[in-house]
Each structure stands twice: as structure tokens, then as C-alpha cells.
Amino acid sequence: MSAGLEVRGLNKAFGGLTVSKNITLDLRPGDRKALIGPNGAGKTTFANLITGIDRPTSGEIRLDGRDLRPLSAARRVRAGVAKTFQITTLFKRLTVRENLRLAVLERERRGLRMFARADGDPAVEHEVAALLDQFGLLRHADAPVESLAYGQQRLIELALTLALRPRILILDEPAAGVPSSESHLIVEAIERLPSDLAVLIIEHDMKLVFQVARSIIVLVAGAILTEGTPSQIAADPRVRELYLGAAHG
């Protein structure tokens, strides 16, 4: 048994269409890996297989040696696998603080308590305040999420997921929809993630990928084409072809 996420020979077919082919990869504590590939390469499907939204046709998914396949999506979160949403999905009419408080309380499995105040535990409030501080959100703490700029909502998306104290964090296009003037906020937030966290970034934005990833996996038509350091990937003629071709097409 070894620490981290192990994926072995993962396949997924929708009817006759195979969208994941024999995917094998490891995600160890401290990893900063990126999963890239053209549209329709099966990146989102792969993330859904890991988080339990979809079930694999065959193959293994293990977290610290424990088989994740029988677990529902909610149980996998509690086991330590969390993912941010590509399209921001927050509790819009709740304040930023309430959003994070809710995540912390659910992580602590206190969501069923009805004879205690939700804001009544100093330890929870301290943790929420620390998260707000880490992501530079203290100033907006008591504003409804829907009133904030999109870039800030992406940060809340990240903070909310981090509040779950995951061991495997999947970032699904963390900078999607963020104006380039604000994307440095996202990069900085990713760089400040706990160093023992295993992070997998699914991203289109190559600039962001090369800034934060230490290893890059290229997915094409559901299968892994290659894996390597950013400089290896940048030099790989097949990848250049793929992206230049896509750029020209």
C-alpha cells in the first residue's frame, strides 16, 4: 500500500463510445500535476470517474490502498477526494463566510446538529477566518457570494474545496472565465496550497499550466499520450503538433 491516489487501467465507455482508454496514473502527496488535452479528450470524464460522478467500465481507483469504486460521490469527498467546479457552483445567496462555514461543518460531520448555533463554535470560526485571510477574502467575508466579481468567486470556489481538507484536490479549469488581469490571483492561490496536498489541474490555459505544474499529462482521445516535465512536454513534437494543429484549426 502506498500513499496517494492510484489509477490503474481505467476504462469508461458510454454505449459504444469509449471516452477513457486504459488510463494509469499516480498522484502522490505534494504532486502538482496537470492534465491537458484538446476538447473532447476525456478530461472531464476522467475527473468524474475519480470523484464518483461517473462509474468506470473497468479499472481500479485506490486512495491509500483503499478501493474508491464502491463509494458514492459524497463519500469520496469525505474520504479525501475533492474537486472544484469548472462552472462556479457556490451557495450564491449565502455570504462568503457562511459558504466556508458550511463546508467546514459538513467536513466535521456536524450538519445534523440542530441544537447548536452554526456560527457558535470558535474553533470553526477561527478556521473560516483563516481561510478567508489566506485567499484575501476577509474584506468581503459578510457579502453574499453573488455580489462579488467572478475572479473572487473562483477564489471562493477554491477556498470552499480546501475547507474540506482534501488529500487529493482536482482543479477543473480553475481560471475558466477569469479575465487575464485577475488570473495571477488564481496562480498565487494555487502556489499557496498546502505542500503535502496532491493536486491535479485540468486546464486549457497553457500559461497557467506551465506556471504551476511540475508534471504534465497529455490526454488525447481518452488515452494518455505522454507524461513529462513541462520542458519535456513543451519540446515534444507530438504535443506541439496537437496544439499548433488545434490553434490553426
Binding site: T89, L90, F91, K92, R93, L94, E98, R101, L102, L105, E106, R110, G111, L112, R113, M114, F115, A116, R117, A118, D119
Partner: peptide, 15 residues
């Protein structure tokens, strides 16, 4: 409604 359960109910309404 002010408890963790109440907050989670509002969370379910939102998303």
C-alpha cells in the same frame, strides 16, 4: 434554522 442543520438546508436550496 440558525443551527448547522438550518445552514445545510439553505445550502441545499442554493445548490
Amino acid at each position: 434554522v440558525n443551527s448547522p442543520l438550518g445552514l445545510s438546508a439553505r445550502g441545499i436550496q442554493e445548490s
